[in-house]
Nucleic acid binder design. Structure first.
Lengths: 220, 220
DNA sequence: ACGCTAACGGACGCCCCCGTCCACTTTGGC
DNA sequence: GCCAAAGTGGACGGGGGCGTCCGTTAGCGT
């Protein structure tokens, strides 16, 4: 007797499913969550209907696509909490989180945005925030984290980090790294300067070079 | 003899022009530069054709609409340079600039975005950046600004500041204020803590309160 | 080898935004 | 008051994304 409930996907189906997820990850990372469903389907080499049957809504697709990042996020905070020195753990969390978010524009949007319906991210984010709150409390006790630090400061930092856009992903990661270092400088109670990561070349050059002629730069 | 060149607008025309600019300022501030032209026209109580004849492209509209902000921006850096204490001037520039950008989402986009064609913002931004570079140089000489500060750090800060979104404009300004204070903490060479501005209520509350039921929170 | 059925993708209708054209209305000099 | 020209707004065609339907293909159990 065959399984009446097709909980197991057909071979081509699961194959397509994987390619869809790969395409979604790639496009979400570069274009953000606003990447058109059609584009994802095209990039995966499937028709729109296939995409929509597998993932009826963009939320579901994003949830599945960002499972890895979600796991990495949880791993980061757990690792930070496990660190013997709370302040060191706190810094690690900030650095790694910034880098993680810098690597995928879409993940940041999904992580920050509050989806009341069915998105698992909310619970995950709350867990992360609560964990960091506890870590921050311990870090304050050691006197390394400034006493007036508030958990919202970390949310502020995440929101700020998402504003960092550059041309290439590498540049964005580098910029985020330096940003994280600056933020840590701002958060520590007894301020002793540690060297900052190198600056990445940002989009608008400082001197009056009239920018690259490549980008048409439409305003839309 | 009447003026053959209608360099002077008819009364109703200039009236509409003002209303269009007001509407554009309001919508650009809340919705950002992506606000539909139709919406601006509707909000101004005119037809689309009127809007398009007065401002053939969104760039021209934005340029005109943000003249005040642009002037304010220049005033801020000039004021900062005039300050006797360079570090104090530097801090003033950061604080005021963050607040200015927090007040209008659209202005930030226009200011940061690099429009090769016809946008006056580029020159204005370059002037501001060069001025701040000089100010930063002096602030370094006094020993208040950390020596490894780079002008790109300021661009980084501006990009980060634009990532701060909240529900209300007041909350955004407050959040930006605190952010600016943190950034200044990170930038100063001999770190002595000054009290931070109060935290504003950010969008996602720290405890597990399941958010306001108001926003449907669509992902698109 | 066969056939049942899950799975596929092209095609459709919908809506929103864009930029332009044109017939009607208003202004302001005489 | 008159009337030419400046000004106006509704309407139009184009383009793109969205979510769904349906005739066809191909996996897989027998």
């Amino acid at each position: 007797m065959t399984d009446r409930l097709p909980h197991t996907l057909r071979s081509d189906a699961s194959d397509n499913r994987e390619r869809i997820l790969d395409a979604a990850r790639a496009l979400f990372a570069t274009e953000g969550l606003k990447a058109p469903m059609r584009e994802i389907a095209r990039h995966a080499g499937v028709g729109p209907a296939t995409l929509y049957r597998r993932f009826p809504t963009k939320q579901m697709l994003a949830t599945e696509a960002f499972t890895d990042e979600m796991r990495a996020c949880r791993a980061i905070v757990d690792e930070g909490r496990a660190e013997p020195d709370p302040w060191r753990g706190f810094c690690l969390v900030i650095e790694k989180t910034c880098e993680l978010h810098a690597r995928s524009r879409g993940f940041t949007e999904a992580f920050m945005s509050t989806f009341p319906d069915a998105m698992d991210f909310v619970a995950e984010r709350e867990y992360a925030l609560r964990s960091i709150a506890e870590l921050a409390h311990r870090a304050k006790d050691t006197g390394h984290l400034r006493p007036d630090f508030v958990l919202d400061d970390l949310v502020l930092m995440l929101m700020a980090n998402r504003g960092i856009h550059t041309t290439s992903k590498a540049a964005r990661v580098a910029a985020s790294r330096r940003f994280a270092a600056l933020v840590i400088q701002a958060f520590q109670a007894s301020p002793q300067h540690s060297p900052l990561p190198p600056v990445a070349r940002l989009a608008p050059a400082a001197p009056a070079a009239p920018a690259a002629p490549a980008a048409p730069g439409k305003i839309t």
